[in-house]
Amino acid sequence: MAEKHINARGLQCPGPIVELFKVAKAADSGDIITIEVTDCGFSKDINAWCKKTGNELVHIDEIDGIIHATIKKS
């Protein structure tokens, strides 16, 4: 299982989910993707994205205005 990281800091909507989609598409089932985002709407959006795409949101937190999310590809 591979682990991939996306730095989406500074990207505005829909940049972070677009980047996440591209990486998730190329990833294999079970791969872990971590992403860092500064757009505060992302913390809600990532839930909707995971629900819709069937991937699992393993962890999410926010430190100093940066959202860190960990997603497991289904």
Binding site: I17, V18, A48, K52
Partner: peptide, 11 residues
């Protein structure tokens, strides 16, 4: 276009 990009990113 933001909606279109977003929808494509939702699969």
């Amino acid at each position: 276009l933001i909606i279109a990009n977003g929808a494509a990113a939702m699969g």
